[in-house]
C-alpha cells in the first residue's frame, strides 16, 4: 500500500500593514519580508505603531522600493512617499546620499502634519559621518527647526526647539566614527520636555522653555530643508528613518530595540 502525503507550500501570514508594504514595495525576499513583518508586529506590541506618521525601512535595494512609507504605502505625496533627488546609491544595505546634492522629500509638512510640541523623528545610519550634515528634518531661519544633525565628526545634535542657542538643542559629544552610527532620535513632548536618544541608548535632555511659531516646510531626509532648499547634505547611509508624534523615554528605547532587531535580521546592523 502506498503512502500518499499531501503537501502544500505554506505562505506565512503577515500582519496586514506589513503585507501592504511588502506588496507595494515589491519585496520578494523572504528574509526581508520577515524583517518587515517583525518590525510592524514589534512596534504594535510596544504601542508605538500608532504614534508613527512615516517609517522608511529602505528595503529592496532600489529607489523604487526605498520610497515607500511603511505606515501608508501609497504612491502619493499625501502618503509621505519619498521623492529622491540628486545623487543616491541604493542597495540592499540602505540608501546612501552622496553628500553633494542627494536628498529625499518626505512631503511631511512641519505646519500641517505635526505639532512642534508633539513630534519625534529619527534615523538609523551607517557609514562615515562628516561635519555639518543633517540626517532628517528642516530649519527655517534660526528660530524654527526640527532636525538631527552631525555637527562635527565627534558631535551629534538634535535641534527641536524655536531657538538654536546652546541648551535648546540636545548635544552628544565625544563620538567616534563607530558611535556616530546607529539609532538616533529626538522627541518633543512639550515646550519644556525634549529628549534625544543616542546610539549608545543614552539620553540627552533639554528643558528650556520655548515658544515656537509654526512654519510650513517639508521635512527632508539625507539633508535638511533649509527654508525651502536642501542643504547640509548627508554622507551617512540611511537604514531606517521615521517621523512621529512625541515619544517618551521608554518608547524611544523600545523603538531603538525594534529598529536594531530589524536591521540585524537584514544583516546590516551597525
Amino acid at each position: 500500500m502506498g503512502v500518499y502525503i499531501k503537501s502544500r507550500a505554506s505562505t506565512p501570514a503577515f500582519d496586514p500593514d506589513a503585507q501592504a508594504f511588502i506588496t507595494a514595495a515589491g519585496i520578494t525576499d523572504n528574509t526581508q519580508k520577515t524583517a518587515i513583518n517583525t518590525l510592524v508586529v514589534s512596534l504594535k506590541g510596544y504601542s508605538i505603531w500608532g504614534k508613527m506618521k512615516a517609517i522608511y525601512p529602505f528595503v529592496g535595494g532600489t529607489a523604487t522600493s526605498h520610497k515607500w512609507n511603511l505606515k501608508d504605502p501609497q504612491d502619493t505625496n499625501a502618503a509621505f512617499r519619498l521623492v529622491f533627488s540628486g545623487g543616491w546609491t541604493h542597495s540592499s544595505t540602505g540608501a546612501l546620499p552622496n553628500g553633494v546634492n542627494g536628498y529625499a522629500d518626505t512631503f511631511f509638512n512641519s505646519l500641517t502634519n505635526m505639532s512642534i510640541i508633539d513630534c519625534s523623528l529619527g534615523s538609523y545610519v551607517a557609514g562615515t559621518a562628516s561635519t555639518n550634515r543633517s540626517h532628517i528634518g528642516y530649519i527655517a531661519g534660526t528660530n524654527q527647526q526640527f532636525y538631527l544633525h552631525t555637527q562635527t565628526t565627534t558631535e551629534k545634535r538634535g535641534y527641536t526647539a524655536s531657538s538654536a542657542s546652546a541648551g535648546y538643542y540636545m548635544s552628544k559629544t565625544g563620538l567616534t566614527a563607530t558611535t556616530q552610527r546607529g539609532f538616533w532620535a529626538a522627541s518633543n513632548r512639550s515646550a519644556t520636555d525634549r529628549a534625544m536618544i543616542c546610539s549608545d541608548a543614552s539620553f540627552v535632555y533639554s528643558t528650556l522653555s520655548f515658544s515656537a511659531t509654526q512654519v510650513s516646510y517639508s521635512l527632508y531626509i539625507g539633508a535638511r530643508n533649509t527654508s525651502g532648499a536642501a542643504a547640509s547634505f548627508d554622507t551617512m547611509e540611511h537604514r531606517l528613518d521615521f517621523i512621529g508624534t512625541a515619544l517618551n523615554d521608554t518608547e524611544l528605547t523600545n523603538l531603538r530595540t525594534s529598529v536594531i532587531t530589524f536591521n540585524t535580521t537584514l544583516g546590516r546592523q551597525v
Binding site: 532600489t62 529607489a63 523604487t64 520610497k67 521623492v83 529622491f84 533627488s85 540628486g86 545623487g87 543616491w88 553633494v100 546634492n101 542627494g102 536628498y103 536642501a230
Partner: peptide
C-alpha cells in the same frame, strides 16, 4: 534620471 530619482543640478 531613473524611475524614481530626479536630477538636482546645483
Amino acid at each position: 534620471y531613473d524611475e524614481d530619482s530626479y536630477f538636482n543640478p546645483i
